[in-house]
Design a binder for these strands. Structure first.
Ligand SMILES: NC(=O)c1ccc[n+]([C@@H]2O[C@H](COP(=O)([O-])OP(=O)(O)OC[C@H]3O[C@@H](n4cnc5c(N)ncnc54)[C@H](O)[C@@H]3O)[C@@H](O)[C@H]2O)c1
Ligand SMILES: NC(=O)c1ccc[n+]([C@@H]2O[C@H](COP(=O)([O-])OP(=O)(O)OC[C@H]3O[C@@H](n4cnc5c(N)ncnc54)[C@H](O)[C@@H]3O)[C@@H](O)[C@H]2O)c1
Lengths: 217, 217
DNA sequence: ACGGCTATGTGAAAAGCTTCACAAAAGAAG
DNA sequence: CTTCTTTTGTGAAGCTTTTCACATAGCCGT
């Protein structure tokens, strides 16, 4: 354990699943949970669960399982969600508006505190208590509001320009909803949310009458 | 080539990326494209592009590259998006409303033709020309409308019940937005869209000051 | 017609990830 | 205190995916 090995993307994604399952177990007043039960709840294997956790330490008790509350806290620490992150959202259209209202984000520590758009009819309007700012003040306001993460929900055609500005403002983490690959420097983390991709996977599975199935997303 | 090997999930996801890049290349009037250029546009390696495509056939010309229009058509065939799929959407709330308005879906052949909710204020209302149906008529109307894919955008607490009904109606493909693992029979394909997961990945990368970076989504 | 050049297609090697299987730890029971 | 049962933690094996590297195919210019 605790060697400085590189942790795979899949392992991190599964930690999110464990965290989610542990939240449910905690609410249902479970004290401990076995790797077997955790695996069952997220459709994984017990060995996978144990191996993933073992990269970060020994959290369980042999013969008993993992302490629910404590493991949840540990995973929160590993994922960096044992704190709040200040988030801004650019593009208050269909998907942007939905995201502002999404309570799960703030529950996980991602607090949307700034909104930006370039549409005069939207600038100045109020969404969930946040007034939409003019995109022209992006850099200044990102900096003033100490934003650490920016969610991009603008049309694909302008996404690269917006991202360039975000990068110039010193932001190091971006979640992009536009269906386009975006260039960012090596020290900036960018992730893409691509819903067509999942529908296309379903389509592929159907036309190929796949026998196997994989879950995730 | 063309052996009946199992194709990996990653390969299918990358086909979606190639398809997207080819759409841009086609619009910009490119006749051919090399694996190198295709790779550059989606931040992959040329070898990866060639290997992925080789699972399905030989589409390129040595010394020249791939014919843009033809490769796009081929990939559409492989993914099963050279046709239209009839899609229903359950849960016309924040995210559901955004999805109805998302033109990219129909452009890829996924036509949302039915909407369902259980809220009396929403039932009967019109979204982009589609009238919201009562969830109580789900099974009958899914069948009557010959729906093949259902998108689930209801609260996590009721998602399993909704999915059970969908499965009983004979649907074999589901795209789920609720942050919960859902049980379905082995012959039903289900994919999960989990936005918190991507934010948590960003958070992990930031607190662990990761040197590496991965893209996808 | 032919040589040069470029970029594919693909086995083989390397890297990465998952599963196996078991020793060891710890609580429970007597 | 000892034995029994349960379930962790983890090397090693097995499997999958990616990368390498090169023979080969086919355009293009002369
Ligand atoms: N609607 C969906 O369900 C959905 C799903 C997945 C991805 N997406 C992607 O998300 C993005 C937004 O989609 P949408 O449906 O919300 O579109 P939309 O047109 O409703 O919203 C886009 C918003 O961005 C704003 N905008 C445009 N140019 C801007 C600029 N230069 N600076 C600041 N703001 C600007 C617009 O004023 C608008 O409010 C698109 O890239 C789309 O492909 C949408
Ligand atoms: N809002 C977001 O940006 C976002 C992002 C990712 C995931 N999600 C997930 O998507 C789901 C919906 O989120 P939302 O923000 O749109 O919530 P919402 O409350 O705005 O919408 C939920 C809709 O489902 C309907 N509904 C409730 N019970 C139903 C039932 N039994 N049958 C039919 N319809 C029913 C409600 O009437 C409502 O219209 C949730 O699971 C949420 O976690 C939302």
């Amino acid at each position: 354990m605790l060697g400085k090995k590189r942790i795979s993307e899949s392992t991190i994604h599964r930690l999110s699943l464990y965290y989610r399952a542990l939240s449910v177990l905690e609410k249902d007043n479970y004290d401990t949970v076995s790797s077997k039960e955790l695996a069952r709840r997220e459709k994984l294997t017990p060995a996978q669960v144990r191996k993933d956790l073992s990269f970060f330490g020994s959290f369980g008790t042999r013969g008993l399982g993992y302490p629910v509350k404590e493991l949840k806290t540990q995973i929160a620490g590993i994922l960096g969600i044992d704190r709040t992150w200040r988030v801004a959202l650019v593009g208050i259209g269909n998907i942007g508006s939905a995201l502002v209202s999404y309570k799960e984000f703030s529950r996980q520590g991602f607090q949307i505190v700034k909104l930006f758009d370039n549409d005069q009819r939207k600038i100045g309007s109020n969404h969930k208590g946040i007034v939409v700012s003019d995109i022209r003040n992006l850099q200044q306001e990102l900096s003033d509001a100490k934003i650490e993460v920016v969610i991009v929900a603008v049309p694909a055609t302008v996404a690269q320009y917006i991202v360039d500005d975000i990068v110039n403002a010193g932001i190091k983490a971006i979640l992009n909803f536009a269906p386009v690959n975006l260039k960012v420097p090596d020290d900036v983390y960018i992730r893409h949310e691509n819903m067509s991709m999942e529908l296309e996977y379903l389509s592929f599975a159907m036309v190929n009458n796949h026998a196997q199935k994989r879950v995730r997303a």
